[in-house]
Write a protein that binds this DNA or RNA. Structure first.
Lengths: 188, 188
DNA sequence: CTTATACATCGACATATGTCTATATATAGA
DNA sequence: TCTATATATAGACATATGTCGATGTATAAG
């Protein structure tokens, strides 16, 4: 979780750095050849302080470097980082790995909490199919696969959760969570 | 110029879209498989309106698409665009092509740009003779050859560029760009 | 040693934007 | 028809940031 988070934030920082027209122009120009601040100022038509500001940001991310030549500072592009970052995007698989996981249990957990009381019993049988399925999925956990349950035993188990065992039994059958033959039930 | 400019701005829009942690997470999740808004909300721990807002931005850029399935809207990633954009970065050569050209500015242009403000007025009168000459050459364009200017008129014209009209007048005379006789000036 | 040049840094300001709450819209279900 | 659910949209607000002007700093030049 924190590992992937950090990786994503690095990518965000990279995108954020390139998400400006003038900075992108600077990168494009440095992709041609190294340049001094003044040369960039002349091409970009903005104040020198603005260019220095952008260069500082790019430099902080390691996207560009600088070497002093007398009074002029010559900036040059680190193409290696560019290519590395590009590969991150080139494969959506990488993005998928770093992304947070789908929280499938969220809906189930909320449904379970709202329909089961603190005593562990069902308050009501959900009318909506989606929620009813969640509850049924939970109830069927009480039955072990491979074991056969006579109807009275089934009723006894279900009665621990709700008085209307007839409805519960029927819904479990209709959902395919339990199967029945000659008054004997089992979990497929 | 407008061609490359547009291309760069498209890239900027792309970067800007990915320059947000939650949007990047969304893209990463959709890279796994399509998802509804609710699923994303559960995973991202932000308000539903926020997720919808992000999805709208990604959709506006064509990065994701949506199909309605009943009440739920299922969003899915357009991986083709991702790969296309990535290739733009993968080759710094492409960036270089779209970048503005290095301006081989003449000495005159640089001098003019540095001494004239955006309002078209002189910021200071250059002390160096070479630069001063460039500015004077520009100022004398305001006068037409063959026309005679009384001193008040000369002052009025020069005042549009700098408050020290006396110095400007004197320098123009000394440079031979204007001539004077009996309080009347003309451009030779 | 003084001035000029090339660049960096600071403070201010206007704009952009991510997030929230509240509300509207559309569809499914009772 | 009425309610519930899923999503979209509008408005508000705080924060982030690109840009500029002014100033600081280091090096070259005279």
């Amino acid at each position: 979780m924190p590992q992937n988070e950090a990786q994503l934030e690095q990518l965000v920082a990279f995108f954020q750095a390139l998400a400006d027209l003038n900075r992108l122009k600077i990168v494009g120009m440095l992709a041609q050849h190294p340049a001094s601040v003044e040369e960039l100022v002349d091409a970009l038509q903005v104040q020198q302080s603005t260019v220095s500001h952008h260069l500082a940001k790019l430099k902080a991310l390691g996207l560009v470097n600088m070497r002093k030549e007398g009074q002029t500072h010559r900036y040059y592009l680190d193409e290696e980082i560019l290519r590395t970052m590009a590969k991150q995007i080139l494969s959506p698989e990488n993005l998928a790995e770093a992304a947070p996981p789908f929280a499938r249990l969220s809906f189930e957990e909320k449904t379970l909490r709202s329909f089961f009381g603190t005593d562990g019993r069902l308050k009501v049988i959900p009318a909506q199919r989606k929620k009813r399925d969640v509850i049924l999925q939970q109830l069927v956990q009480q039955f072990e696969t491979g074991q056969r349950y006579p109807e009275p035993h089934v009723n006894e188990i279900l009665l621990r959760f709700h008085e209307d065992v007839f409805t519960l039994r029927r819904e479990l059958i209709m959902a395919g969570l339990l199967e029945r033959e000659n008054g004997v039930y089992w979990r497929p």
